[in-house]
Design a protein around this nucleic acid. Sequence first.
DNA 1: AATAAACCCTATAAAATAAATAGGGTTTAT
DNA 2: ATAAACCCTATTTATTTTATAGGGTTTATT
Lengths: 138, 138
Amino acid sequence: MLSKKTKYALHALTYLGKHRENKTVLIQDIAEEHGISHKFLENILLELRKAGYLGSKKGKGGGYYLIKEPKDIPLSRVIRLLDGPIALLPCVSLNYYEPCSECKNEAQCGINKVMAQVRDETLKILENKSLQDILDGE
Amino acid sequence: MLSKKTKYALHALTYLGKHRENKTVLIQDIAEEHGISHKFLENILLELRKAGYLGSKKGKGGGYYLIKEPKDIPLSRVIRLLDGPIALLPCVSLNYYEPCSECKNEAQCGINKVMAQVRDETLKILENKSLQDILDGE
DNA sequence: AATAAACCCTATAAAATAAATAGGGTTTAT
DNA sequence: ATAAACCCTATTTATTTTATAGGGTTTATT
C-alpha cells in the first residue's frame, strides 16, 4: 500500500493540475480541500518542488504551481520519490538496491529472479500511467 | 515492499518445494538455512498451514510438508495472506476495502479510478506467477 | 519602511506497524 | 516414560510512518 505521504502528494498534484489557470495555489487550499494537516502537506510539496515537478513563489500572493505537463509525471516517479522502491524486494530494486540478509546466493535465488520479472512488469504499468490519467478520470 | 514475514514465507515454501521427496521438513532446518528466528518462522508456517498450503505432522519425526502443487500457489495468495492488500490504496482493495479519509467523493476520484486499473494489471502479474516459477529459477 | 502573508527548513514527538521473543501446551514415535 | 516435534497466545522491542513544533526567509502591499 502507498503511504499517506504519497496519497497526499497525488491529491495535491491532482488539485494543482485542475487549477493550472491560476498562477499559484495555496498550501492551505489543498490542505482544507482534503482535510490534511497543513504542515505535513507543506513537507510533501517541498519534496515535489525539489524533485522538479512544482514551482513556487514566495511572499504574499505566492503559492505552488505545476511546472511539468501532467502527462510527463508518471506514477512511478511520484511513488519512488515519496515511498521509495517499487520493487517488492530490496534485492531487485533498481533505485534502492540492498541485498537480502536471509539470501545465501542471490545469483541462484528463484525468488530473486521471479521478483525481478514482477518488478519489470509492474514498472511498465506505473510508467505508463501519469497525472494526466488521473485528471482524465475526474 | 514485502514484509519479512512474506519473504520468509516464500523462502520456506521454496525450501519445502525443493524437499518434497522427504515426508516432512523441520522448522529448524528452514530457519537455519536462512538464518531466521525459529519462533518467528513457526508463526509463519502456522499461518500457511491454516491457509491450506501446508500440512504438518506432530510428535517426534514430525514436521511440515507441501500439500498443494507449487503451480497452484500463486504469489498473489501468499502476499495477501501474510502482507495484506495488493492494491496500492485501501479504496480499491478487493479483499481489504476501506474508504480513504481524505477523499470526498470516491465515485469521481481520478486517483481511485487509475489505482483500480493498476490493481487489475498488478493482479494479473501476481496471479500468473507461482511457487513453481520460483522453483524453476533455483 | 513596515507589515503581513506566503513558502522554506530542521528537528522532534507521537502513533502505528512490523519483527521478534517468551513461555508454555499438545501430540506422537520411540 | 520420554523426548522431539508442532501448536497457541500474549507480550515486548524495534522500526517506520505520521504529525507537530518552532522558527526563518522572501516579497507584495500599504
